[in-house]
């Protein structure tokens, strides 16, 4: 898989990394800015824009990364549930062959036969 496809697939993690980088750069710029001015009245705007602003970027980056993890978990559960629902239902009182069911489930998941779901929000 080439790099652009990887970036498209993991756009949220890529954005989180970019925001993380921006946050660090903004904090460093703020540090140098505060160091270069002698008066507190000139330093406080740096603290607000670069200091608190940098924390702002870092917070959004962390949330985006955790959000990507949640979405992966959600996607995995969705595909699993879909594959399980497509399995043949156990019949009456006949004995259940668990191994057979799990094999069929594994084949469906590996083959990716679960159809693409519609964009629905619960």
């Amino acid at each position: 898989m080439n790099r652009s496809a990887l970036l498209r697939a993991h756009w949220d993690r890529a954005t989180a990394l970019v925001l993380l980088l921006i946050g660090v750069v903004v904090l460093v710029i703020g540090w140098f800015g505060v160091s270069d001015v002698p008066f507190a009245s000139q330093q406080i705007p740096y603290v607000i824009s670069a200091g608190i602003g940098g924390v702002f970027f870092l917070g959004v980056a962390g949330t985006l990364w955790l959000s990507a993890d949640l979405q992966d978990e959600w996607r995995k559960l969705h595909l699993l549930e879909q594959a399980v629902r497509e399995l043949p239902a156990p019949t009456g009182s006949a004995a259940v062959d668990r191994d057979e069911l799990l094999r069929a489930l594994g084949e469906r998941l590996v083959a990716g036969t679960a159809p693409a779901a519609r964009r629905t929000r619960s």
Partner: peptide, 19 residues
């Protein structure tokens, strides 16, 4: 790789957040 494949093949699966 499996994770990336799932994300690529199912880019528009519903999301865990309501509107």
């Amino acid at each position: 790789h499996a994770l990336t494949r799932e994300r690529r093949d199912h880019p528009s699966l519903d999301i865990p957040w309501p509107y």
